[in-house]
Design a protein around this nucleic acid. Structure first.
Lengths: 343, 343
DNA sequence: CTGAAAGCGCTTACAG
DNA sequence: CTGAAAGCGCTTACAG
């Protein structure tokens, strides 16, 4: 393999000059730079990343941690972030926790990320105090996306989950529903997407604002995915007297609810209305009403908040004084919600 | 930051011994190893990846290239592979092409992957002769998953796309359908998931085996996703006299077809039957009939075929003599296919 | 604008 | 089983 000395020899300069010319540093004359580039081209020279990292300290790589890449929101966020990172010349090290607490611990263990990446993006990753301390000790720039826990000094981009849930519940209330069930994630799951706690809170706040009292028998927890939505809805129906509407904490759970309702012989929206949060790529196909959140924007903006400072650009104009960016959500009414029927 | 010399000093041994002990090489006495591990633990020592890579030549990282991480199949494959890689102690560098030919060229350019990874997994990535040559020049182990093009010396894992398509078309024929449309990916798209060419072939073979002649007016190409399925179906309906059944080259296109048919006022399966290939996570929710392919297994097996040789394990028992593994598909009949109605 | 030299922090023959 | 020393291939003050 050809190395920097070969290029230096062919171009008739020192390796220091080759290094500077290839990286586009300003302190190289135009003529010299041309000679170096030509020599590098001719020899098909490619810098050794390990050597460059060891000598220079920069890795040109960022770590992205997501709970499950197969869930709609996380896939979209990673795709948007990946695009931004690669355009900026950074590689992406993917850590998919896959629902295993053990994976979270391994990834967040300071030793693992140390000297391996220049920056970290944490997507919906729950953090304990010890994790936050470990991340702070790494002394690397980072950003959290769609996360309940924030890391001091890191910007965060997300939606207002409480507000999004209130919009969903308000929509059902406006349609005349009073027996509104809520299905959401399991709070005991350490890897749970923490947003669902805020969403439950918003739901209950909106009920109370309407003079209703949250009914524990209409609140079921399960896993935060399609299968969880099915199980939660089955449990709901088992408890007797079904609700007239179900607010699912995410579209995937809402889709599971659609399946369970269909299997139970209940029609949507004639017998039961269903709404979720997300605006999943398939929600339109299913006619699912939802509160849309901007996933691409969260991934892209998260990446930008991470890289801009590394390139010396300020992000002050993008974030609030506390470092956060709260993106808007909006109600999307389709065919799964309808006025409650008179009894 | 603490480095190997610090550990060596505290343990009272040379850095060479620390290096050996920490990597678990057999040529270290039990007592010495214990002292080294204790010292490393006490100093919170973590090896510098760049230094280790530069000196040792191994990166402990593998590159995974996928067309679009947001599509069901690719997300599942990456998740399964990621799990396998991390268990084996390897990091995953993700390259999501995102539908851009330019990205494919950047990633496959020899210089980019050179010295950055120990192995490469290409998922459904179309390759030109020059790409294959560039990959061969890298002289790295690799594997292709679900790819039409193979790289000499690399194993490949996939399904038999021709056979899968024949199963789907056979199912429709068995239900009495004769006007069967096919919607699939765009062959002009350089980044296209090449499987759709084989699927079209299988479809046409099965039609001919039944004494039918493939009708070009019932064959529409579009993008290989939900929106593409919708557009292709709209085009199909615009051509007049609709088919009694549609075979979509993948479930996501089938889902787009369901939307277009609904919007056109056609009922599934009463007016039109629809079948896809995949068994997407949401196909059950939608009641979509399909030919299931094992995505998790393809990701896991691909990862294993890549890493086993790096660990000195033979994979001869897993693959056929030509290095390929062809996994089974199976028909899953749900509610989107029904016998053709008498006219 | 350019070069000589030190140094980044490991691993690997080689010798014992 | 262990150590001294060379070397992996760059980048970065420092000096000019």
């Amino acid at each position: 393999m050809t190395k920097i000395d070969d290029v230096a020899r062919l171009a008739g300069v020192s390796t220091a000059t080759v290094s500077r010319a290839l990286r586009g540093l300003p302190t190289v004359s135009a003529a010299t730079r041309r000679r170096v580039l030509a020599a590098a081209e001719q020899l098909q020279y490619a810098v050794s990343p390990s050597a460059s990292r060891l000598a220079g300290g920069r890795t040109g790589t960022v770590a992205v941690v997501v709970p499950r890449i197969t869930r709609w929101f996380f896939g979209v966020v990673v795709e948007a972030a990946e695009d931004f990172f690669h355009r900026a010349g950074y590689d992406l090290l993917l850590h998919n926790l896959g629902g295993r607490e053990q994976n979270r611990q391994r990834v967040l263990h300071a030793a693992h990320l140390h000297k391996r990446v220049d920056a970290i993006m944490l997507v919906a990753t729950p953090l304990r105090a010890s994790d936050v301390a470990a991340l702070a000790a790494l002394d690397l720039p980072g950003v959290t996306v769609s996360s309940g826990t924030t890391v001091p000094g890191w910007p965060c981009v997300r939606i207002d989950d409480v507000a999004a849930a209130r919009i969903a519940t308000r929509h059902l209330l406006d349609l005349g529903h009073r027996r509104i069930a809520h299905i959401s994630g399991d709070p005991d799951d350490e890897l749970a997407y923490s947003a669902h706690l805020d969403r439950r809170r918003g739901h209950q706040e909106e009920l109370r604002a309407a003079g209703l009292h949250p009914d524990p028998s209409l609140d079921v927890e399960s896993s935060f995915d399609i299968a969880g939505g099915t199980r939660a809805t089955e449990e709901l129906l088992r408890r007797g007297d079904p609700p007239t509407a179900i607010f699912a904490a995410c579209d995937e759970m809402a889709m599971g609810a659609l399946t369970a309702l269909r299997d139970a012989g209940l029609r949507v929206p004639q017998d039961v209305s269903v709404i979720g949060i997300d605006d999943h790529a398939l929600s339109g196909v299913l006619g699912l009403s939802t509160v849309a959140q901007p996933a691409v924007e969260q991934g892209r903006l998260g990446a930008q908040l991470l890289l801009d400072p590394l390139c010396g650009r300020s992000t002050d104009a993008l974030v609030k004084p506390d470092g956060s960016v709260i993106l808007d959500t909006r109600l999307v009414v389709r065919d799964s919600t309808a006025p409650v029927r008179a009894h």
